[in-house]
Amino acid sequence: MKVKNIAAIFLILLSIWILLNNQFQIEVMIIGVILSFVISIIMGSRITVFNELKFSFKSVFYTIWYLFVFLAELVKSNLDVARRVLTPSLPINPGIIKTKTVLKSKMGRMILANSITLTPGTLTVDIEDDILYIHCIDVCCEDIDKATAAIVDKFEKILVKIYG
């Protein structure tokens, strides 16, 4: 279990090193491998969030799919907010509501909360076990189940497949 965690950190750091350097000389790569290895060994005992990653074809596919869904929602949300800002009467109906999530993994919950923050008129104010408190620019419903269906579900059903 621990090996997987360290390997995940190692791979992420190595890919960041390659992106930073943008060149593939052999000595650059050797330094990158050594550095990533050392950092992942030192930090690996503390950073356990990568344990939840699954390395499989399915999860990679769903990650890419998630990225597309998310970018589409991002654009949609911005158009929505832009419409509200440009309307002279400022049509807003704000409030803080509760929703639920079934995700258990920390990583998945962080991605979920970040996605909610970036999508149509919603902002995660607090997270407490499986309850997410969300500030909506346009409150649809105060009932917890309806709100969950409206806001959380579209991301959650993909994230469940990646992080289980």
Binding site: I9, I12, L13, I16, L20, I39, I47, T48, M107, R109
Partner: peptide, 18 residues
């Protein structure tokens, strides 16, 4: 906040590497 905690765990090694 739990989100900040998770994000910091991801970001700290990246910052050190940078």
């Amino acid at each position: 906040s739990e989100i900040l905690d998770t994000a910091s765990r991801i970001l700290v090694p990246v910052i050190f590497l940078f």
